[in-house]
Write a protein that binds this DNA or RNA. Structure first.
Ligand code: NAD
Ligand code: NAD
Lengths: 231, 231
DNA sequence: CACGTCCTGTGAAATATGTAACGACGCGAC
DNA sequence: GTCGCGTCGTTACATATTTCACAGGACGTG
């Protein structure tokens, strides 16, 4: 139906894109252990997916392995980074400097992975002008979100404000040409098509797990352990 | 093929289960605005899915709507809560009381949704015995994870320890009969089949979004705004 | 009480995603 | 150089998920 086009335009499924960072992270970990190459099988075991899936996912982008040998880890990591546009550093705007926002600003994980918190905003006069984060960053007024983000060419925003303020915050960021949002507020954001949103909602995750925690399920596994208790 | 069995055993797709909390949250929000009923179309618009999907999802569990009328919100919320086992409160064990762990312990969102942080663990002697969270909770030694969790019948754990300690922490929790894990550490946990894991990985989410942020994409949308810039 | 409108629940069709299977290649041993 | 083993990339198949589209119930109106 669709012609095979090895270079690009092949319309990659989004699930595949979401798995690539996990592949990259796991490969980098192996590299840290001094391991230089890995087969799809070994990698699959470590990640908890099938080997076929890994080979298939990678085949959307090209040929990275060697038959009989597996993948050269350093090379594959660099290829995945290239695919994901992680060869450059990305500036990120953080909005909301409350409990969560401060934890995010301090979190080393972002910096270690090409993401730099380049601007922090809040609407609390007490917090504005306070130092934020390791380098001389200070908290700016939320009134300046759109202008600052646009001037600095920031394309990624993190929303860590109360639910009631999240939609408006998204709009201010988008007005400043942000096109990727990481949203911690428990709200579904309404955004234009060209904007990409990812939600982080620990409560929803817990709530979806309790579905599997009814009594019969727990009873069954208590049995499996050879132990049955009440409550 | 499979007989229709309205009561149970119908093997519900996991994606469906993951959407239910969002439905419940959105419905509760509408209820807060004083709205008493809603059609699948209105709800779909608000959530950003199709109406057919909502109707189909709900139909796995029964018939909750009225033709011509839509869904009675209060009733539907209570039904979804029943389905998700949210009619009871759930005790949760939190392991790791660093920056993230402290933010989690303070977060009101869990408490407001049936989840109670019932025990907190850390391995730093400085932190052990310190008060943790609003009510008289104190930080316990990680050596006690398995015993305490088992004694108190806690089935849900939150992992907020460094990546290197996450697997071992999961094992201690599982040994204490925890069967649901919310994992904040950037590691793929290896767990038995009967244990349910959800990962929260903001870095991976950002990395999957940058795929869509290459130059041509940004250029295209700058055009759409009638503006083209370099950088 | 007949009619029109609105909206559900659900089969059937369309897509999307995951898995299995295998031909072909690289490499080391002999 | 040929054999044998291990592993890739890919195609064909299997399963999962979403969407379409419509029969039919509920309700208000006249
Ligand atoms: N704390 C957590 O662990 C956690 C976890 C998951 C999700 N969340 C969500 O993240 C959000 C923030 O949570 P928190 O615990 O940090 O709350 P918080 O009240 O501590 O912080 C919110 C911050 O946002 C600021 N703010 C409010 N309106 C604003 C606006 N219009 N523009 C800019 N800043 C504004 C406030 O001044 C405050 O500093 C909430 O939506 C919450 O549901 C929190
Ligand atoms: N801070 C964030 O915003 C954030 C966001 C996402 C993910 N994470 C992840 O969450 C984890 C914690 O991050 P953090 O910023 O809170 O780090 P942190 O160093 O501030 O806290 C880690 C805590 O875990 C404790 N700990 C270490 N080993 C332990 C063990 N074996 N048993 C019990 N406790 C142990 C430490 O004493 C410390 O108190 C990390 O894996 C990190 O990658 C953090």
């Amino acid at each position: 139906m669709t012609l095979y086009n090895p270079t690009e335009e092949a319309e990659i499924p989004e699930v595949v894109i979401r798995r690539l960072p996990i592949y990259a992270r796991t490969l980098a970990e192996l590299l840290g252990h001094g391991i230089g190459s890995v087969s799809s099988n070994e990698l699959a075991d470590r990640i908890g997916v099938t080997a076929a899936q890994i080979r298939r996912d990678l085949s959307y982008f090209g040929k990275f392995g060697k038959q009989g040998k597996g993948y050269d880890i350093a090379y594959l990591v660099s290829e995945i980074h290239r695919i994901l546009n992680l060869t450059q550093d990305w500036d990120v705007a953080l909005v909301g400097f409350g409990h969560l926002g401060q934890a995010i600003a301090r979190y080393r994980g972002f910096r270690e992975s090409n993401f730099r918190i380049a601007a922090v905003f809040d609407d609390d006069p007490e917090k504005i002008a306070r130092p934020a984060g390791p380098e001389g960053l200070e908290v700016l007024s939320h009134a300046r979100i759109t202008d600052v983000v646009r001037e600095r060419g920031i394309r990624i925003g993190i929303i860590a404000v109360p639910a009631a303020a999240a939609q408006q915050t998204a709009e201010l960021l988008i007005a400043g040409r942000v096109v990727a949002l990481l949203n911690y507020a428990p709200v579904v954001l309404q955004v234009p098509d060209h904007v990409c949103v990812r939600d982080i909602d620990p409560v929803a995750m817990l709530q979806s797990m309790t579905y599997y925690l009814d009594k019969s399920y727990l009873r069954a596994h208590a049995h499996a352990n050879g132990l049955v208790e009440d409550k």
